[in-house]
Structure formats: structure tokens, C-alpha cells
């Protein structure tokens, strides 16, 4: 979804600059942890098989790449925050709202419902609420609402049944 943005972002929005710093920190932390991993030399193993060797090197590479990213961002001032293009703050908050709703619904399903409630029921509930909540349109009249809800229920039942049957019966997979 990458679009080149026209507006020059303020210092608070410098994703690249900050993420570069995060990478430097992550890389150094990884390298530090790797350095302190046991070398297992007491087991008489070859020193080149030390478990920390490759993660340590990767940590350094991460820090290096992060450093380049930060430096570049600081030098050019060019930065990338996708999705800000042509959108005023109202649109931005609407997007954040939609994102939050999706996240909450998905987490509620995958973390809370699945495993506690019968799988087919959990799935049905999730599909139903997802459709209804996202399709909610206050301009619709009563019968429009009814139609939307009925449609959502039908889809929820079909999906729940189909997924359960296909995975359990055909792919012989255990469902959570």
C-alpha cells in the first residue's frame, strides 16, 4: 500500500528515524545476549559452534542497518508514513477506529473464544459480529437492518459449519 507522500512530516512522525534507532537498540541487545550465551567449551565442542555466533553477527548487522536507516532519515529528512496521504486528521482517526475494531474482534475470537467455547459456535459468533458491526449503517431503515442481520447469520452458520466439517473430517485436523 506504499504511496509516496507529498507532505514533509514533522519530527514527531519520523517513522524511519525512530525505527532505525529501535533496530540499533534491538541489534545491540541481541548481540549482547549472544555474547553472553554459553560457549559450551567445557563440553569440548568446537569453538566455532558456539550458539551465540550467528545471532551475534545478525545482531550487529541489524544494528548496522538500523544505523544506516536513521542516518539516512536524518540527512534527507525524507520519510515514509504510508496511509497519511491526502488524509486529514478526521480520516486518520476513522482509520484508527476501524483498525482498533478489527483488532479487538479478532483478538476476542482468537484469544478469548477459541479454546473456551465450542469451535463452531465461536466461529459463528465471530463472523456474525464482524459482519454486523462493520456493515452497520445508521442510514438504513428497519427492514434494511433486519436483512443485514439475517444475511450475517446465514453466512456465520455456513462458515462455522463448513470450516468445522472440512478441517475435522477431510483434513483430519484437530480444532482448538
Amino acid at each position: 500500500m506504499g504511496r509516496k507522500i507529498g507532505l514533509r512530516p514533522g519530527p514527531g512522525l519520523r517513522a524511519d528515524f525512530l525505527f532505525g534507532l529501535v533496530l540499533v537498540a534491538l541489534g545491540i541487545a541481541v548481540a549482547f545476549e549472544s555474547w553472553h550465551m554459553p560457549r559450551l567449551t567445557e563440553l569440548g565442542v568446537h569453538p566455532m559452534t558456539a550458539p551465540g555466533l550467528v545471532p551475534g553477527l545478525l545482531g550487529l548487522v541489524t544494528a548496522l542497518l538500523g544505523g544506516i536507516l536513521t542516518t539516512r532519515s536524518a540527512r534527507t529528512g525524507d520519510d515514509s508514513i504510508a496511509g497519511v496521504v491526502g488524509s486529514d486528521s478526521r480520516n486518520l482517526s476513522r482509520q484508527a477506529g476501524r483498525f482498533a475494531l478489527t483488532l479487538v474482534l479478532c483478538l476476542a475470537y482468537a484469544v478469548v473464544l477459541v479454546g473456551r467455547v465450542e469451535f463452531a459456535l465461536a466461529t459463528g459468533l465471530f463472523v456474525f459480529s464482524f459482519i454486523v458491526l462493520f456493515e452497520w449503517n445508521s442510514e438504513r431503515d428497519f427492514s434494511g437492518h433486519v436483512r443485514a442481520v439475517v444475511f450475517a447469520s446465514v453466512e456465520a452458520v455456513i462458515v462455522a459449519a463448513l470450516v468445522t466439517v472440512v478441517f475435522e473430517r477431510i483434513f483430519l485436523v484437530r480444532l482448538p
Binding site: 475470537y109 465471530f126 464482524f130 459482519i131 462458515v159 470450516v163
Partner: peptide, 12 residues
Amino acid sequence: KLMPVVFVLCTV
């Protein structure tokens, strides 16, 4: 209508 199904499949 599509995305909840995709997510269910992701979970399973």
C-alpha cells in the same frame, strides 16, 4: 463478508 472468513482460516 470476506475478511472474517479469512481470519477464521488464519486461526485454524
